[in-house]
């Protein structure tokens, strides 16, 4: 705004100059030149003011949520957030990135809450004091999807490690997110457990979100690790089949963490807490459980994930 005023002053400054230094017609001449541009300029300034006013007016009633591409791209948040926004009379600005990026953004204090899925990283985030506490929101499972003819012959294998070993051994195309997302972290853990360091022409890193990565795998007839929700959400346009599923190792738990007000004073703790309360409330849990795409439910409520997922409280540690 200050800039706008300064610029405006410049404009009128030279008009005033023309008026004082010359006579009336100097002013007329200046007016003639500026009359056309002035209109554009004024509209621009008004637009800028509107943008700023809208930004400033909103800002106290805006909660920023960084989340994974898998929760966002399935449309789950569009399903459960409007009711919360309406009741609290706020806007939730959803920034959809991978889990790793979401945590980095939260560490910088650029968002108020994160909804992610990488348990170890989440616990560390809270331990380091960036997160106040963690609550489990929901769960589903990862699967390995791949071409229908299953060239590696791993279909139906119950043990993920064995399947991965066979994929690597046969150098069958495998597409990795490669973006430090929750899915990528999980994949890295699974490979680490096999003792194999995946590399070579058969191992492709897309560096993109889940849906894009699925597209890459589909186009290249490759295998890919994907959360079930993303798989179902995209299944209509994909030829990929579910190849490996059901291993307890493949459990995928989502947690919500409000960013610590002590570490990042700009965080809106009250609103962040309210969002957490909403996500774990029975009402929202029911909405999550009933959320379906293509006739299939995508997520299980938190209660179903309690087997390994307790909640943490950063202050208690």
């Amino acid at each position: 705004m200050t800039l706008g005023v300064m610029v405006l002053w410049r404009r009128f400054g030279f008009l005033a100059g023309a008026l004082s230094r010359d006579n009336q017609d100097g002013f007329m001449k200046a007016m003639e030149f500026t009359e056309k541009t002035l209109v554009t300029v004024m509209i621009g300034l008004i637009a800028l003011c509107t943008v700023h006013a809208a930004d400033a007016g909103d800002r106290s009633r805006v909660l920023r949520l960084a989340t994974t591409t898998s929760t966002y791209e399935t449309g789950l948040l569009d399903h459960i957030l409007p009711l919360f926004e309406q009741r609290q009379n706020i806007k939730v600005h959803v920034i959809s990135v991978g889990t790793g990026k979401a945590m980095a953004v939260a560490r910088a204090g650029d968002v108020d809450v994160i909804l992610v899925h990488a348990r170890q990283a989440e616990d560390q985030f809270v331990r380091e004091g960036y997160g106040s506490y963690r609550r489990t929101v929901m769960a589903n499972d990862f699967i390995i999807a791949g071409p229908a003819d299953d060239p590696a012959g791993v279909k139906g294998m119950r043990e993920t490690g064995a399947a991965l070993r066979r994929l690597a051994g046969g150098q069958h195309l495998f597409v990795s997110r490669g973006d430090d997302s929750g899915t990528h972290k999980k994949e890295s853990q699974l490979w680490a457990a096999t003792g194999i360091r995946p590399q070579g022409k058969w191992y492709l890193e897309s560096g993109q979100g889940m849906s894009s990565t699925l597209t890459v795998a589909d186009e290249k007839n490759a295998y890919v690790l994907v959360d079930r929700a993303s798989y179902i959400a995209n299944s209509k346009r994909l030829r990929l089949h579910v190849i490996v599923e059901g291993d307890p190792e493949l459990l995928n738990v989502y947690g919500v963490i409000p960013v610590s007000h002590e570490r990042r004073p700009s965080v809106k703790t009250m609103l962040a807490d309210a969002l957490v309360d909403w996500l774990v409330s029975p009402e929202c849990q029911k909405m999550i459980e009933e959320f379906a795409l293509e006739g299939e439910r995508l997520f299980k409520p938190a209660s179903a994930a309690e087997t390994d997922a307790g909640d943490t409280d950063g202050h208690a540690e």
Partner: peptide, 17 residues
């Protein structure tokens, strides 16, 4: 439209002089 128009107006106001 809003964002591009605002940024272009700002650019016009500063870059032309």
């Amino acid at each position: 439209v809003l964002v591009a128009f605002t940024s272009t107006s700002l650019a016009a106001l500063t870059a032309v002089p």
